[in-house]
């Protein structure tokens, strides 16, 4: 199965050829970020999504293991 990896930066999706779902979503996101406030909201969500993954995988480590903060 092809999972939806990040193949390009936001707003750098190819003009030709098919887009992955995440690229398609990135195009929409690029149109909605037009101010420092919207940028901050986007970064906040990315941070939150990352934090959940970090916590999930940390449960399998001995307590106190350090990582990305």
């Amino acid at each position: 199965m092809i999972h939806d990896r990040r193949q390009s930066d936001i707003d750098a999706e190819p003009l030709l050829g098919g887009l992955t779902h995440s690229q398609e979503r990135a195009r929409h996101i690029a149109t909605l970020i037009d101010s420092p406030e919207t940028l901050e909201i986007a970064i906040e969500q990315v941070k939150r999504a990352w934090g959940l993954k970090d916590r999930f995988y940390r449960q399998f480590l001995p307590q106190g293991a350090s990582g990305f903060a």
Partner: peptide, 27 residues
């Protein structure tokens, strides 16, 4: 996201990054 001023943007970011991009990184 629903209570944020730019809720749609927030939803798309959570969906894209949490449910698509990072999932692919995990696998």
């Amino acid at each position: 996201c629903l209570s944020l001023p730019h809720g749609e943007l927030a939803l798309l970011c959570v969906l894209r990054f949490g449910a698509e991009v990072l999932v692919s990184v995990e696998y």
